[in-house]
């Protein structure tokens, strides 16, 4: 089923190549002598007139809209971990970059009432991650985002480096729960599913027969 691709016939002018080379040099030279600021980082570099390169990391590239950064965990507006350790992202992640340690029965109580659990540890190996966004898509709790500024409360200060994942060894490139939460910032979830559930339950007519309160945490 091979499809034959017709080669474009080059004219004599094109086959000389020199004109193309010269065109290329023109572009380079144009940039070298340019007084215009490049659009990509213009607002970050208000002072520099002459702009050929970016003095990274003192100067930062401002990422264009729609940029998807690395996956981070987010807190809700009360500062509680949103992730409930359902491990769907771990399952869906194509390169198996995510590794969650479930809390077990004695785990720390979930920060949000009613959510019952949260991960004991949450690791993302940024060397493995392919930034596909599956984890964000599958998450039933909106707890993980590959985000620049999709959501309210996005923390510019922490997040603006999200294209720069650096580390001096492999271990450093495995981000743990605390680091992921810190970088993820706060997500202003209007739904607050677990809180609503618990609230609903409290507001409801009292349960007909009083069951002895047999909470397992007692």
């Amino acid at each position: 089923m091979a499809k034959e691709v017709q080669r474009v016939k080059l004219s004599l002018w094109e086959r000389l190549f020199f004109p193309t080379l010269i065109n290329g040099f023109k572009v380079t030279l144009g940039h070298f002598l340019s007084f215009k600021k490049s659009k990509v980082y213009e607002h970050k570099n208000k002072t520099n007139k002459f702009k050929t390169t970016l003095n990274y990391p003192e100067e930062l590239w401002s990422v264009p809209e729609g940029f998807r950064g690395a996956p981070y965990l987010v807190n809700d507006q009360d500062g509680s971990t949103k992730c409930v350790s359902c491990q769907l992202c771990e399952f869906v992640c194509p390169p198996k970059a995510i590794r969650i340690t479930p809390p077990g029965i004695d785990g720390e109580d979930a920060h949000r009432e009613g959510a019952e659990k949260m991960p004991e540890d949450f690791e993302i190996n940024m060397l493995r991650c392919i930034f596909c966004g599956f984890c964000e898509e599958v998450c039933p709790e909106q707890a993980i985002f590959l985000a620049k500024d999709y959501y309210e409360g996005y923390n510019e200060k922490l997040m603006n480096r999200d294209y720069a994942l650096t580390g001096s060894n492999r271990e450093e490139m495995v981000f743990h729960k605390d680091k992921l939460l810190e970088r993820g910032g706060t997500h202003h979830d209007r739904i607050k599913k677990w809180e609503k559930k618990t609230q609903d339950a409290k507001e409801q007519e009292s349960f007909p027969v009083t069951m002895a309160e047999k909470n397992i945490n007692d």
Binding site: E116, K197, D200, A201, Q204, F207, M211, K214, N215, I216, N217, D218
Partner: peptide
């Protein structure tokens, strides 16, 4: 409508919730 809410995390016995 509102859902019916019932007890959660009830300790039924030494091995069951």
């Amino acid at each position: 409508e509102y859902k019916v809410h019932k007890p959660k995390k009830v300790n039924l016995g030494p091995r069951i919730i």
